[in-house]
Amino acid sequence: MTQTETPSIRIGTAPDSWGVWFPNDPGQVPWKRFLDEVVEAGYEWIELGPYGYLPTDPNELEDELGSRGLKLSAGTVFTGFHKGEDQWQRAWDQALEVAGLASKLGAEHLVVIPDLWRSDATSEVLESRTLDDEQWQKLAAGHDRLGKALLEEFGMKQQFHSHADSHIGTTREVLRFLAETDERYTNLCLDTGHYSYYGGDNLKLIEDHPERIGYLHLKQVDPTLLFDILKNDVPFAEAVAQDIMVEPPHGIPELAPIIERVAQIDPNIFGIVEHDMYGCSVDRPGPIAKRTRDHIFSCTRAARVN
């Protein structure tokens, strides 16, 4: 294969890489500064981030992105389908807002993050760490219902994001989730850092289930610190404050092989740099985002800006 024939995926970034977890937090980077620094760092694709952080008026958001040459890849919602039928309305209300906005700006993906069993705001333990069979059934059915509705209503694809301190995090949990959901409606936003958090092998998951990889979040975890985090049962938010997610190339997994393998599966898949940095100084993220982009483009030809 010649250089010009090398398949590549689009690389973007997200508000999370600027320490943004909440719509309104005076300690976070102001949204206009975020957009400006995204451009300075060399990205053209971004995610919406928490609904309400960026403008929610589609015309205003389109103007703000367009004036900077930026485009939207996805929005994000949170779900708790294992808790019961009442969770459907909560999920769909979010979808109407987030997918309604994101789809108007051309985004084709909705990243769906499951509720955490331990709060990322207070570190309070909210429920059991594991699900019983009935809860698994409710979880899977809820996501398939959501994915089908998103396709029919907005033409958007649901991309499920396994997460530290959630019920779907380990390899066995992710594989069970795939086995109990329908690939027509529910696939993965494979977050390389979160999957590695519990020892998952990203490349093996991609090789074994290429048809279920619909979207990527690119990040690395500090493999040395990780053992202390797990041994001491440190809540995820506190682990983030300790820099458990580390600037590439100083962590795992290696990003180039993942990007290259996914590009062979489907060059339309996004690889969004999403570095968990909540609580950081507002001056810290921009330079890291630029260095991360430079690292990715220096280590593989399977990455492209647009």
Score class of each variant (00 low, 15 high):
residue 2 T to M: 07
residue 4 T to M: 09
residue 5 E to L: 05
residue 6 T to P: 10
residue 12 G to I: 04
residue 13 T to L: 09
residue 16 D to S: 13
residue 18 W to V: 02
residue 20 V to M: 14
residue 20 V to F: 13
residue 21 W to E: 09
residue 26 P to A: 07
residue 27 G to K: 15
residue 40 E to N: 11
residue 59 N to S: 05
residue 59 N to H: 04
residue 64 E to Y: 08
residue 65 L to M: 06
residue 65 L to K: 08
residue 66 G to S: 02
residue 66 G to A: 03
residue 68 R to E: 00
residue 69 G to A: 07
residue 74 A to I: 05
residue 77 V to H: 07
residue 82 H to E: 06
residue 95 A to F: 06
residue 96 L to Q: 00
residue 100 G to V: 05
residue 101 L to N: 07
residue 102 A to G: 01
residue 102 A to E: 06
residue 104 K to G: 05
residue 105 L to P: 08
residue 106 G to P: 10
residue 115 D to V: 14
residue 120 D to A: 11
residue 124 E to D: 11
residue 125 V to K: 15
residue 127 E to R: 02
residue 128 S to M: 01
residue 138 K to M: 14
residue 149 A to R: 15
residue 151 L to K: 12
residue 156 M to G: 00
residue 157 K to F: 13
residue 163 H to P: 14
residue 170 T to V: 10
residue 171 T to W: 12
residue 172 R to E: 15
residue 175 L to E: 06
residue 180 E to I: 01
residue 180 E to T: 11
residue 184 R to K: 06
residue 186 T to H: 10
residue 191 D to F: 13
residue 210 P to D: 11
residue 210 P to E: 10
residue 217 H to K: 04
residue 220 Q to H: 12
residue 222 D to Q: 13
residue 222 D to I: 09
residue 222 D to W: 05
residue 227 F to C: 07
residue 232 N to Y: 15
residue 239 A to M: 05
residue 247 E to G: 08
residue 248 P to W: 01
residue 255 L to F: 02
residue 257 P to C: 04
residue 258 I to Y: 00
residue 260 E to L: 01
residue 263 A to W: 12
residue 264 Q to P: 09
residue 268 N to Q: 00
residue 269 I to T: 08
residue 270 F to S: 02
residue 272 I to F: 00
residue 274 E to S: 09
residue 275 H to K: 02
residue 279 G to I: 07
residue 280 C to D: 07
residue 282 V to Q: 08
residue 283 D to V: 10
residue 286 G to F: 08
residue 286 G to M: 13
residue 290 K to M: 03
residue 293 R to L: 04
residue 294 D to P: 10
residue 294 D to V: 01
residue 295 H to C: 08
residue 296 I to H: 12
residue 297 F to C: 09
residue 297 F to N: 09
residue 300 T to I: 01
residue 302 A to N: 14
residue 304 R to W: 04
residue 305 V to C: 06
residue 305 V to Y: 05
residue 306 N to I: 02
